[in-house]
Design a protein around this nucleic acid. Structure first.
Length: 206
DNA sequence: GAATAGATTGTCT
DNA sequence: GACAATCTATTCT
């Protein structure tokens, strides 16, 4: 397994190019109990300011969305329905508020630690088959907001980063989940997932 | 398996 | 004060 951080250049393009490329890569988080790693199997592209489904729609720049307007390769975290966290990767050049929401991952390393955090059986898909679940499992919360995915920590690996995964994932696309409020933008096929992976949070949509 | 209701809080109008 | 890029338990079929 190659646990080397992807370079900053990986994050510099448009969200629509990077989101499919992220399927199959590894999300790595080093926590006190050990190193957690999981394959990204589902994500969604959000491209403000035009995209009305994005939190950065219309160029809305607030304390919460601020990091999306900064340089690529950083982490955008937000709270959902008052009780869950969601993990996003900021992409595209500075000033262009694109982000990619990671919706589901497949545990690769430290599944036992994740299971303990979630209070779920280690082999269960319920561990990480949803944005809120993967954050709870991998220990991602407000403390992760703004983290740099490309910054070596004390001469070693960053605390959190994306690493190349095995090639060959079959990537499918569909409309994004639960963004009905965004009108025509809600129907854009900007959700990407790995075909047949059992961790994908499939739900009927249009 | 599908549908439904209830939880619970930071952020912005 | 309203609402949200959700999850879980529960109640059906």
């Amino acid at each position: 397994m190659n646990l080397t951080p992807l370079p900053r250049s990986f994050y510099e393009g448009s969200a629509l190019e990077i989101a499919p490329a992220m399927i199959g890569t590894l999300l790595v988080h080093r926590v006190p109990e050990g190193t957690l790693a999981a394959r990204i199997v589902e994500c969604e592209a959000y491209r403000g300011p035009e995209d009305l489904a994005a939190h950065s729609a219309g160029g809305r720049r607030t304390r919460r969305t601020e990091v999306m307007f900064g340089p690529p390769g950083h982490v955008y975290m937000f709270r959902l329905y008052g009780m869950h966290w969601a993990f996003n990767v900021v992409v595209s050049p500075e000033g262009c508020p694109h982000a990619i929401l990671v919706r589901a991952v497949e545990p690769v390393l430290g599944a036992d630690i994740m299971a303990a955090r979630r209070g779920v059986e280690p082999g269960s898909v319920r561990l990480t088959n949803g944005p809120g679940k993967l954050c709870a499992a991998m220990g991602l919360d407000a403390a992760t907001y703004g983290a740099d995915l490309c910054a070596p920590k004390a001469g070693a690996l960053p605390e959190i980063f994306l690493a190349p995964g095995a090639a060959g994932a079959k990537v499918c696309r569909s409309a994004r989940i639960n963004v009905d409020y965004a009108g025509a933008w809600a129907r854009k096929p900007w959700r990407f997932y790995e075909r047949g992976n059992r961790y994908v949070s499939v739900r009927p949509r249009d």
